[in-house]
Design a protein around this nucleic acid. Structure first.
Lengths: 137, 137
DNA sequence: TCATTTTACTACAAGGAGGTATTATTTCGT
DNA sequence: ACGAAATAATACCTCCTTGTAGTAAAATGA
């Protein structure tokens, strides 16, 4: 019941950048502000760029900039890009044949909990996250 | 949003044994009925025995038997024994300093989802799981 | 007692997540 | 053109989960 570190990092980075949605952020400046290791952050930035949330500007004075405005980036999209939301949708007891038609004993309560969980990420965008939260670590 | 395979296995084993709460089950017979690898199941049985849910009888005609009746074994206890429930209780965005007093932007919705999730495991016992579910894989 | 059946223990290996090191590539300022 | 500053790519490395292999130890039935 926890996102991976990778997803947490991705959301943290984008939320931080959303403080200045038009700004240009170097990997170095992000590493200094956020609590993420240098090389791992750089790898993540490449993933986020490939997913179309940001684009990179190489060379001197380069960095990263939003390719899509933060109020148009749903949290579920970010999670999908770096780890996938699918893993959060199976039977809680791991039964392959569990379904609405053939439910396990926890299916009904699980379906409603899961729906609320998924809704948290499919209805909120980066802009909905508090830009001050990134200092909470 | 998924238990580990290990927890799923542990719940599956105990639920299967609950079909006959007084019965003696050899590791071999459990491996044949459940979809768990032989050596891994045997290791898990040792963990479940150490946790006090079952006890083992070594030697010829040995096996495992409940040490505690299945209606007295809460699912959260089983998860605690093999992987720990703690990992399911932190801030969903990974902020260390997130709390009721200093909540992140997702804190409130997260707290209610998490409470329902935890309740699923702290209020149900092995007896509440459908003994027929173990064939759902 | 002894062979057989069964659990217990230790070590090892594959795979993914997280993290690090090194080298390439791009671009701007001079 | 060249050097500095920045991202990109590649290849490792470590840890945890999951699973496997081999050996040791225990206990019963004959």
């Amino acid at each position: 019941m926890k996102l991976t570190n990778t997803s947490e990092y991705a959301l943290r980075i984008l939320t931080f950048m959303a403080r200045n949605p038009e700004g240009l952020f170097s990997a170095k400046s992000l590493v200094e502000k956020l609590n993420i290791s240098d090389k791992y952050l750089r790898r993540l930035m490449t993933d986020l760029a490939k997913a179309g949330f940001i684009y990179s500007i190489q060379g001197r004075d380069g960095g990263y900039r939003f390719a899509k405005m933060p109020n148009d980036i749903f949290l579920s999209e970010v999670i999908d890009a770096v780890e996938g939301m699918k893993k959060y949708t199976g039977c809680v007891l791991g039964f392959e044949k569990c379904s609405d038609e053939n439910p396990c004993a926890m299916h009904n309560s699980w379906v409603s909990v899961r729906a609320e969980f998924v809704k948290m990420f499919t209805t909120k965008t980066i802009s909905d996250l508090d830009i001050n939260d990134v200092s909470k670590f």
